[in-house]
Amino acid sequence: MRRSEFLRAVDDEFGPRATTLMSDLVLPGIGLTPQDALEAGVSPREIWLSLCAETDVPLSRRYGAGRLEPRR
């Protein structure tokens, strides 16, 4: 997962709450907020999965999130 895909996935999943979650929620498995984890070089995929687990995002919406549809 690329950083851009991660940010798109967060916006799509959490909408108006995305900014608050990115800056305020400390992820237990990482020990940082998602924003701080990105800045520290933690893999966006690791952050995404941790964020999903912490906020109870269903498994069906975790894989492939943030990817654009292929061009035709």
Rank of each mutant, 00 (worst) to 15 (best):
I47H: 06
G15P: 07
S50G: 12
E54K: 12
A37D: 05
D24E: 15
E39S: 13
L38D: 05
L49Y: 14
A37T: 11
G31M: 10
A65D: 05
D24Y: 07
A53T: 09
V57K: 00
E13D: 09
D11F: 04
T33N: 09
L7G: 09
R45W: 12
L7V: 13
L32G: 06
P28H: 09
E46L: 15
E5N: 14
S43F: 05
P28A: 14
E5G: 03
L7F: 04
F6D: 07
L21A: 03
E5L: 05
S23C: 09
E46P: 05
S60R: 04
V42I: 14
I47T: 10
G64D: 05
S43W: 10
D56M: 06
T33P: 08
Q35A: 15
P28S: 12
T20Y: 11
V57Y: 00
D24I: 02
P34V: 10
D36I: 04
T55I: 00
D11N: 15
D24F: 05
V42P: 08
R62Y: 00
P28K: 11
A40C: 11
D11L: 09
A37G: 08
Y63M: 04
I47M: 06
T19H: 13
D56T: 08
E46Q: 15
S23A: 13
E13N: 08
E13L: 14
T33F: 01
E13Q: 15
G31D: 10
C52S: 07
S60T: 14
C52W: 01
T33V: 10
D56V: 05
D36M: 12
G64S: 03
Q35H: 13
S43I: 02
G15Y: 01
G41H: 07
P44N: 07
E5A: 13
I47L: 10
P34K: 02
T19L: 04
E46C: 12
R61M: 01
L38A: 07
R8P: 13
D36E: 15
P44A: 04
A65M: 02
L25A: 13
T33D: 10
S23I: 08
L49W: 12
F14L: 07
R61W: 00
G41C: 11
A18I: 08
F14D: 08
I30W: 00
F6L: 14
G66Q: 03
T20D: 14
A9R: 01
G29E: 12
G66C: 05
V42M: 09
L49A: 05
